Simulated scan of single mutants.
Amino acid sequence: MQWLNEPTEWFYSGNRLIVKTSPKTDFWRTTHYGFIRDSGHFCFNVLSADFVMEIGIRGNYTDLYDQAGIMLRVDENHWIKTGIEFVDGVQNLSAVVTHEYSDWSIMPLPNPPEVLHLRVERRQEAIQIAYQDGTSEYKLFRLTYLPGDTIQAGIMCASPDGNGFEASFEGFP
């Protein structure tokens, strides 16, 4: 396990990794806002084969854009982050796919689960993002691509506008 932008506060408790995000942290590239941010917290392993990653995500989201989830990264210009993002007082299932420029997809979760179960699957260049919606079945949220022989894969969290919050990740690594 390695950190990109290691947070000041993090620890393991049983099968959970608990992180307190640092203020003014984010991952974003150019689109709409005109800035580049590569300061979010990312704990990862380097993988070179197809894989499935399933984790449970909890967060004490309080400020605009507080976020926690899974990240796949080839380099600072090519990456995906997906999970919960807090926007206008609502938890949203979110995905940002970045190939030089970031895009952003969200789906409001008006009755968010206590723990969001998220699954990311890599099959060659294809990336499937799925979530559990209160049943044991995973539902597809997004299908995209991320080319690369090796990929950094792990958890990410950030507080772009806020002063930090606590996020926990179950089943990681």
Rank of each mutant, 00 (worst) to 15 (best):
H99G: 11
S22I: 05
I84S: 06
D50C: 07
N5Q: 02
F44S: 02
N163G: 08
Q132Y: 00
R58I: 05
F35P: 06
P110E: 06
T31Q: 08
R37H: 10
L109A: 12
E9T: 14
W10H: 08
V115R: 12
D103Y: 09
L64P: 01
G83W: 00
R123S: 10
Y33D: 10
P110D: 07
Y145V: 09
V96F: 03
F165I: 02
P173I: 08
Y101R: 09
G162D: 01
K81T: 06
R16A: 03
S94C: 13
A158V: 01
G89C: 09
E137D: 09
E114F: 09
M107P: 02
E121G: 13
F42T: 06
Q128M: 15
I84E: 02
Q67D: 04
G164A: 15
G162Q: 00
A126S: 06
W3P: 10
H32Y: 14
S13W: 05
L4Q: 14
R123M: 05
S102R: 07
R122E: 05
R29C: 07
I106Q: 12
I106L: 13
G162P: 01
N60W: 04
S39I: 01
M71G: 07
A167L: 04
T30G: 02
E125W: 00
E76W: 05
K81A: 08
A95K: 08
V87A: 03
L72R: 11
V87W: 03
D161E: 13
E54H: 12
G134S: 10
G59A: 12
K20Y: 00
F35G: 09
F42W: 06
T25C: 02
P112K: 04
T8G: 10
Y12Q: 12
A153Q: 06
Q124D: 12
R58D: 06
V115M: 15
E121A: 12
D66K: 05
Y145T: 15
G34H: 08
W79M: 11
W10F: 06
S105L: 15
S13E: 11
L93I: 13
E6Y: 09
T135A: 07
W79D: 06
R37K: 15
T150A: 05
V87C: 07
R29P: 00
M1L: 09
A68N: 03
Q152D: 09
E125R: 05
Q132H: 03
T21G: 00
H32W: 10
V19L: 09
A68W: 00
C157Y: 00
E121F: 08
P173A: 07
F172W: 14
F86L: 07
W28G: 02
L64N: 08
E114C: 07
Y12N: 11
W79F: 15
P160W: 06
I127F: 03
T62M: 14
T31I: 00
S159W: 02
T144Q: 02
Q91Y: 10
F42Y: 10
P7D: 03
D50E: 07
T62G: 15
E170Y: 05
P112E: 05
N5D: 01
A153L: 07
